[in-house]
């Protein structure tokens, strides 16, 4: 009895978070799961249609393609941001005079709403003569580039723009982590005659595991859920080249009054995210544990 009374405050501490989360996230997910077996259109009564929506999702060409796009994007973005942010963090932790200015400039894009980043970059990367890049090129007497009107380069540019707006922010996470690394490690390494690269390879990089867990997790879930930016930059085009699954759920499903179908797509997607993120977290945490 005393044991229970002692635990009451702990339960009360946890309760608000659990209640909010259950209402905002969990119940709607269960509800979505239920809808995914119906032909609900958002407006009228519905019938159960079994696995029909799931079968349709797997056989609709653009649904499959948008799945593929999302997966490609969700692999490319975390990898490129991490590969660039760690060296950037090391440099920005150095002794440069303009260090703070540089940090501010790199951080700046992340305070802008991602939707507007998409709009700004669209203006820069448009295939039209009046896109900023093309107007510079034609001004210099060169041929204009296809940029966003080529399916492959559209995807590449979408990834680049995402890297642009996330780089500084994630570098900050690593900078913070670097500052916690005790200088003694480096002093010891210097005594042993280690090169700058050796120091990075054997001290800095392994010690960054905690920051990496958070950073990669944020990047991975963020890019799987990406919605605003790809839409504002390319509207999912050309064709379906940069259409993300979240976009398909909205336009093919809810916008078209096919809530049942949208729910099935959502559920396949949720399942994918859950699997990917669980694997990622397991892997990352293990790396952190090795640190101890």
């Amino acid at each position: 009895m005393r044991e229970i009374r002692k635990n009451v405050p702990y339960a009360l501490f946890l309760a608000p978070a659990i209640i909010i989360y259950t209402i905002i996230t969990f119940i709607p997910v269960v509800w979505t799961f239920f809808y995914s077996f119906t032909n609900f259109n958002g407006l009228s009564e519905y019938e159960f249609v079994g696995l029909n929506n799931y079968i349709q999702a797997f056989t609709t060409k653009n649904v499959v393609q948008s799945f593929r796009n999302t997966l490609l994007y969700a692999v490319a973005v975390p990898v490129s941001v991490t590969v660039l942010a760690i060296p950037l963090a090391v440099i920005l932790s150095g002794k440069m005079k303009s260090r703070n200015l540089q940090r501010a400039i790199f951080f700046f894009p992340s305070v802008i709403s991602s939707l507007f980043i998409g709009y700004i970059w669209n203006f820069i990367l448009s295939a039209s003569k009046y896109g900023l890049v093309n107007s510079i090129l034609t001004g210099l007497g060169m041929e204009k580039l296809l940029l966003l009107s080529d399916p492959d380069s559209a995807m590449l540019l979408l990834i680049l723009v995402t890297v642009w707006c996330n780089l500084g922010w994630h570098a900050s996470i690593y900078i913070a982590n670097i500052q916690t690394i005790s200088p003694e490690f480096y002093e010891a390494a210097e005594v042993d005659g280690a090169s700058a690269f050796d120091k990075f390879r054997y001290i800095t990089f392994p010690m960054l595991a905690p920051a990496m867990t958070t950073s990669v997790m944020l990047l991975l879930t963020g890019s799987l859920k990406a919605f605003d930016m790809p839409f504002a930059l390319t509207s999912g085009g050309p064709g379906y080249a940069t259409t993300m699954i979240t976009q398909t759920i909205i336009t093919e499903g809810i916008g078209a009054n096919r809530v049942g179908f949208a729910s099935a797509m959502a559920f396949i997607f949720l399942f994918t995210i859950a699997v990917v993120s669980t694997i990622q977290t397991k892997f990352m945490t293990k790396r952190e544990d090795n640190l101890r």
Partner: peptide
């Protein structure tokens, strides 16, 4: 249970959420 919530985009649940 809470960790799962991290993964769920709003686009997938907005109709039931609106009813709630």
């Amino acid at each position: 249970y809470l960790f799962l919530g991290f993964l769920i985009p709003l686009q997938t649940t907005m109709i039931p959420l609106f009813s709630i």
